[in-house]
Amino acid sequence: MAEVGSRLQRIRLHRALSRPNMLFGADRELVLVTGLSAVILIFVVLTPISAVFGFAMWIVVVGLLRMMGKADPLMRQVYLRHIRFRRVYRPTASPWRRY
């Protein structure tokens, strides 16, 4: 009689399903918002100085976002959750009690 459970079952996990969604090595939404603001700056002002400034701003900010993404790919979500917390939670017996 064969032993049940003598071999461990292997399941393949594809990395694409468990990795954070990144663009240029940084958080996707932040890169897109930065690009959109740079394009708006370039095409609204329509001067060569604004084009250079918008392009330089985009390059610098994407570089900073890449450093942030390398440190922690989920840093934006962690920070947004952090600022939603209160500074102090009072010990109360009921959630409906007034502070």
Score class of each variant (00 low, 15 high):
residue 29 E to W: 09
residue 58 W to C: 13
residue 53 F to Q: 07
residue 44 V to E: 06
residue 12 R to Q: 11
residue 82 H to N: 12
residue 18 S to Y: 05
residue 47 T to I: 01
residue 89 Y to S: 05
residue 55 F to Q: 05
residue 45 V to R: 04
residue 63 G to H: 03
residue 46 L to E: 12
residue 57 M to D: 02
residue 6 S to D: 15
residue 69 G to K: 02
residue 53 F to M: 14
residue 90 R to N: 05
residue 28 R to V: 04
residue 24 F to E: 09
residue 35 G to H: 01
residue 87 R to N: 11
residue 27 D to P: 01
residue 81 R to N: 13
residue 51 A to Y: 01
residue 22 M to G: 03
residue 12 R to V: 15
residue 50 S to H: 01
residue 24 F to I: 10
residue 61 V to T: 13
residue 22 M to N: 03
residue 59 I to K: 09
residue 79 Y to D: 09
residue 5 G to Y: 05
residue 88 V to Q: 04
residue 23 L to M: 06
residue 94 S to F: 03
residue 93 A to M: 11
residue 98 R to V: 02
residue 38 A to M: 03
residue 95 P to K: 04
residue 13 L to Q: 10
residue 26 A to H: 01
residue 78 V to C: 05
residue 27 D to Q: 06
residue 57 M to H: 05
residue 7 R to M: 15
residue 1 M to N: 08
residue 33 V to D: 07
residue 60 V to N: 10
residue 20 P to V: 01
residue 82 H to R: 15
residue 98 R to M: 05
residue 43 F to K: 04
residue 17 L to V: 07
residue 19 R to I: 02
residue 4 V to F: 12
residue 25 G to I: 00
residue 83 I to N: 05
residue 78 V to A: 15
residue 39 V to M: 11
residue 31 V to D: 01
residue 77 Q to V: 12
residue 38 A to T: 02
residue 37 S to L: 14
residue 73 P to G: 04
residue 1 M to K: 13
residue 92 T to W: 03
residue 39 V to K: 15
residue 26 A to K: 00
residue 39 V to Y: 10
residue 92 T to L: 07
residue 79 Y to T: 11
residue 50 S to G: 00
residue 88 V to Y: 04
residue 46 L to I: 12
residue 73 P to K: 04
residue 1 M to P: 03
residue 98 R to F: 02
residue 67 M to P: 01
residue 21 N to C: 07
residue 54 G to F: 00
residue 8 L to G: 04
residue 91 P to R: 15
residue 80 L to R: 15
residue 34 T to A: 10
residue 28 R to F: 09
residue 32 L to E: 10
residue 36 L to S: 07
residue 29 E to Y: 06
residue 24 F to R: 08
residue 40 I to P: 01
residue 11 I to N: 07
residue 99 Y to H: 10
residue 74 L to E: 15
residue 99 Y to P: 08
residue 46 L to D: 14
residue 73 P to E: 03
residue 21 N to L: 12
residue 75 M to E: 11
residue 83 I to K: 13
residue 35 G to C: 07
residue 37 S to V: 06
residue 18 S to I: 15
residue 93 A to P: 05
residue 9 Q to N: 10
residue 56 A to E: 03
residue 91 P to G: 11
residue 64 L to T: 14
residue 14 H to M: 11
residue 79 Y to A: 14
residue 65 L to Y: 02
residue 63 G to E: 08
residue 52 V to E: 06
